[in-house]
Structure formats: structure tokens, C-alpha cells
């Protein structure tokens, strides 16, 4: 039996070590009631968005022209718009699109930002200052304007929306990752990896990026609400998602146009968007406090 005992001990050590950073962070996160509220609300919204096609009471473009706009009632819980489309269904399908844009565009910005920042930080020197100078210049550009121009002149399709928003949001991520990589590069374990003759890309992907994961996750959570806001903003201006498809920004725009007669068309989409943004911000703040206790609260 001695071998079993040894492996138990070894396992015990491994588990303890593996749990220390993330376990600690989880414990801190669980204590933060606002962050937990955000996590739970967000999971619920995401779950509803996932199974929307199965549970939505009506299709998002189904019209019931006979009655026109109805205030909330037993058949249409949140009422209908002027074309008789069920608001609850449109809200659910819109949530799918808004969340999808939020996550997909964040993924784009994550990919570009992490690779760019890691490369700049790792190779350093002239290449680094050149790459970061480009980031500085791009920061000075009025990007909202570029996104608007892109959407107006190159058609309003969703793939372009992902790319345009992702292209705007990667800059800060690149800066954060670069800073992390630069400080990690000086650590002994990276020197050891270099001494072992590992190729650069292995060092980057196996050693540097995983160790910078904390700030990356935190910033990604804080990017999602920004992205969703930008999508809603574009849809509100009539440049994002187009009717009869649905997104929260588009619904708010439609609601704003008719709020005098049918205020519910404005109120419910506004609540949905604000609640999601609240949850994401709370969760992001909570994650930051949990993963990086040194970072200040503001």
C-alpha cells in the first residue's frame, strides 16, 4: 500500500496548489453579493437566450395585424407593437442577438488584442515601441465615427458588425497583455524555458499568456457590456441589426418612436438592456476584486 499513500499525498499537494489562485478568487467572488447577483442574473438571461427558439411564445416576425398594438395582457405578456408582433418574443430573440454580438465581438477583440499585446511585450525593443505607437495613434482616432462610416457605406450585416466592433475594442486589451507579458518575461521560469531552447511561440502560448489570464478575463468581462452598448447604439441609430430581426437597441429605437401611445414598447427593452449591463458590470468589478486584490476599486 505504500505507493497508494504516496500518490494520495502527491495528489493532495497538486490539488492544493492548483486551487490556491482560482480557489481563493472563487471564495472572494462568492462573498461579493453584487457580483453573485450579476452572475446569477446573467446566467438566467443567457440560458433563456439559448433556449429561446424552443420557449418563445411566438416567432419574432409573426404579425397579428387584426388588433394592432396591444398593452400587456394574458395572451401577450409584454404587449405587442403596431404590427401586432409579440414584444416578449422579440425581446427574447433580440437578447439572443445582443448577447451573441457581445460575446462574439469580445472574442474577436480578445484574439487580436492578446496576440498583438503578447507579441509586442515579448519581442520588446524597436518592434514593441513601433507596435505600441500604432496603438497610441489608433486611440486618438474617433472610432465611433469609423464604425458608423463602415456600417453605412458597406451595408448593415452582422458579420461586419462583429468585425467593426472587435476592431475598436482590442486596443486596451493589447496594452494590458503587453504590460503583463513584459513583467512576466523577467521571471526565472521564462528564463528557464528560454534556456531549454523552447521556441518563442511555445513560450508565449504555454508560459506567458496563461499566467496573464487573470487580467485578461477581468478585462474581457468588462469589454462585453461596452460591446453590447455599441451594438445597441448602432442599432438605435438604424445602422446595426435590421427589422424584422430584433435586437435590444432596435427595440428601444422602435419604442422611443412610439412611446407616447405605447410606452411599454420602450420600458421593457430598456429594462432588459440595463439589467444585463448592470449584471455584467457587477460581475466584472467582482472578478477584478477577486482575481487582482491589489487593483483599486475605481
Amino acid at each position: 500500500m505504500p505507493s497508494a499513500a504516496t500518490s494520495e499525498i502527491v495528489e493532495g499537494i497538486v490539488i492544493e496548489e492548483g486551487a490556491s489562485l482560482w480557489g481563493d478568487a472563487l471564495r472572494r467572488l462568492a462573498k461579493n453579493r453584487l457580483a453573485l447577483f450579476g452572475l446569477i442574473t446573467l446566467s438566467a438571461i443567457a440560458f433563456v437566450a439559448l433556449i429561446t427558439p424552443a420557449i418563445a411564445p411566438y416567432p419574432y416576425d409573426a404579425q397579428d395585424l387584426e388588433y394592432g398594438a396591444q398593452s400587456p395582457n394574458a395572451e401577450h405578456w409584454l404587449g405587442t407593437d403596431r404590427l401586432g408582433r409579440d414584444l416578449l418574443s422579440r425581446l427574447m430573440y433580440g437578447g439572443r442577438i445582443s448577447l451573441m454580438v457581445g460575446f462574439a465581438a469580445t472574442a474577436v477583440s480578445l484574439l487580436v488584442g492578446v496576440l498583438y499585446g503578447a507579441a509586442a511585450g515579448y519581442f520588446g525593443g524597436r518592434l514593441d515601441s513601433f507596435m505600441m505607437r500604432i496603438v497610441d495613434i489608433m486611440y486618438a482616432l474617433p472610432f465611433t465615427i469609423f464604425v458608423i462610416i463602415l456600417m453605412v457605406f458597406f451595408g448593415k450585416n452582422i458579420i461586419l458588425l462583429f468585425l467593426a466592433i472587435g476592431a475598436v475594442e482590442w486596443l486596451t486589451m493589447a496594452r494590458i497583455v503587453r504590460g503583463q507579458v513584459r513583467s512576466l518575461k523577467e521571471k526565472e521560469f521564462v528564463e528557464a524555458a528560454v534556456a531549454m531552447g523552447l521556441p518563442s511561440h511555445t513560450i508565449l502560448t504555454r508560459h506567458l499568456i496563461p499566467n496573464a489570464l487573470g487580467p485578461i478575463i477581468v478585462y474581457a468581462t468588462l469589454t462585453i457590456p461596452n460591446v453590447m452598448l455599441l451594438e445597441a447604439f448602432l442599432s438605435f441609430l438604424g445602422l446595426g441589426v435590421q427589422a424584422p430581426m430584433s435586437s435590444w437597441g432596435l427595440l428601444i429605437r422602435e419604442g422611443q418612436e412610439q412611446m407616447e401611445e405605447f410606452p411599454w414598447l420602450l420600458i421593457y427593452p430598456s429594462i432588459a438592456l440595463s439589467l444585463t449591463l448592470f449584471s455584467l458590470n457587477f460581475l466584472g468589478d467582482g472578478l477584478r476584486d477577486a482575481l487582482d486584490p491589489r487593483a483599486s476599486k475605481d
Binding site: P225, L229, A232, F233, F236, G249, I252, R253, G255, Q256, M259, E260, P263, L266, I267, S270, L273, S274, L277, F278, N281
Partner: peptide, 22 residues
């Protein structure tokens, strides 16, 4: 302040109109 950060202007604007104007 948290409410102010999470409620975008295109939501706040129409809601203010709804309350104060209409």
C-alpha cells in the same frame, strides 16, 4: 452612479421624456 453608468443615454433620454414631458 452605478445606475448612471449602466443606463445608456438612448435609454435614459426617452425615459426622461416619458416622465417629464409626457
Amino acid at each position: 452612479a452605478m445606475v448612471g453608468i449602466c443606463v445608456p443615454s438612448f435609454v435614459l433620454g426617452p425615459l426622461l421624456v416619458l416622465v417629464f414631458s409626457l
